[in-house]
């Protein structure tokens, strides 16, 4: 299956990736090839097969006791942030 430029633009938007004009034809070509390649999956008969989300059988979610184990470390954590003010992370204005 081949993807159109429009398809790739939509995917890039959903994934919030800026793709330049120069890169666009390359991605259209690459992604089309990848999708054609994985299309082979549809040759297998999987009618009665349960999908497998985890590689180990029989493992179940462990539940953690409800106990606080953290102290305020926001200054340390915010050292990696580009813009911070008054303890808040800053982003361009959110418009609803």
């Amino acid at each position: 299956m081949s993807l159109t430029r429009k398809d790739v633009e939509n995917i890039a938007h959903l994934a919030r990736l800026a793709i330049t004009e120069d890169e666009m034809p390359v991605y259209v070509n690459n992604l089309s090839k990848i999708v054609s390649f994985v299309d082979e999956l549809n040759t297998a008969d999987t009618a009665a097969i349960e999908p497998m989300a985890h590689p180990l059988k029989g493992q179940v979610q462990r539940l953690r006791p409800d106990e606080i184990a953290d102290r305020d470390q926001h200054e340390k954590y915010q050292r990696n942030a580009a813009r911070v003010e008054a303890g808040l992370y800053l982003v361009p204005k959110v418009i609803e």
């Binding site: 813009r83 003010e85 008054a86 808040l88 800053l90 982003v91 361009p92 204005k93």
Partner: peptide, 14 residues
Amino acid sequence: SLHEDFQGSSGIDL
């Protein structure tokens, strides 16, 4: 998201 003005930005409290 706190929309008070931080020079045109919003502040995020998580």
